[in-house]
Design a protein around this nucleic acid. Structure first.
Lengths: 154, 154
DNA sequence: TATATTTGCATCGTGCACGATATAAACGCA
DNA sequence: TGCGTTTATATCGTGCACGATGCAAATATA
């Protein structure tokens, strides 16, 4: 009986899982200096692009459930990075707005993308490979989110 | 000032992080039936390939620290999937061995890789794309683990 | 051989992820 | 208007991840 398929090296999921963890770890020194974690950095990137979003809007952009985002935002509020306020129009919604500290972190974050690219490019990875990987992954994400929606509808 | 680099869509790390979570979620229905989690499935794949490894050997194969693996293995011992025994030659080491239940789970797991491939292939992803992605990710993992080692040595 | 260092594993604390559940506001409709 | 349903968020429980720390066995070194 052929068991090669059940070997770690044959699965595409394991490299995906490991690469994700390792690259998050590569961000860590930079984020440590800013006093935030990687998921918190993701929230900031969303808010830097458009401030004043609801919890739900942020969770949709990050493909994370609100039960992950909710406590995360509370921690960021405690860090004085943002504030949470109930919406006046819809009392159910909570509007997230950057505070001064959250806005200032943007300047500190500016060099991060370049420095991370450097880590990869310095070691025989072509920029085209980075872009290709990104494109492929986005395609997969599209498929896998569709796949998820179908399951929920059933 | 150009902020495009700080946009979520420009970062390669976010698709990696999302795709990893989404594909793990795609495994979930199959693993639920087996009564295990995705990291536990990874441990099993390692042990199915070679039984009787130490905690350290497993952690190296999975690129996870022992402080993640240790409690994970304890939970699997409680599930009667494996047993943990101190090595006779080196009292510091703990040998992990599959129990009957752990061995039987292999049969149940056999169809999983194919079924996951189907989810991807059914939606316009070529097998060649899967293989290409795997290859690229493995290259990245190699670079990022090297990068990590260098940091530790410093 | 005594002591310092390394190694293998475990424990602790914190922060995600996420399924399940709760709760209150908003909405739909008879 | 009244009431069932949907929607937005929060809470709870469990299982990772992982840095920091602890501890005992093995090894290296003076």
């Amino acid at each position: 009986m052929d068991d090669t398929q059940l070997q770690l090296s044959s699965q595409v999921c394991f490299p995906l899982y490991s690469a994700s963890r390792l690259i998050t770890k590569a961000y860590k020194p930079f984020l440590d200096e800013m006093g935030i974690t990687y998921p918190q950095y993701l929230v900031l990137m969303v808010l830097w692009e458009k401030d004043g979003l609801t919890v739900n809007q942020i969770s949709e952009k990050l493909l994370l459930n609100t039960n992950t985002i909710s406590p995360l935002l509370k921690r960021m509020e405690k860090l004085d990075i943002l504030q949470r306020n109930r919406s006046a129009e819809d009392e159910r919604s909570v509007i997230i707005q950057l505070k001064e500290k959250g806005k200032q972190l943007k300047d500190q974050a500016k060099p991060i993308p370049d420095q991370l690219l450097k880590i990869l490019l310095n070691d025989n990875i072509e920029l085209s490979e980075v872009l290709q990987l990104k494109e492929m992954l986005n395609h997969w994400i599209q498929i896998l989110t569709e796949n998820n929606k179908n399951k929920i509808e059933k």
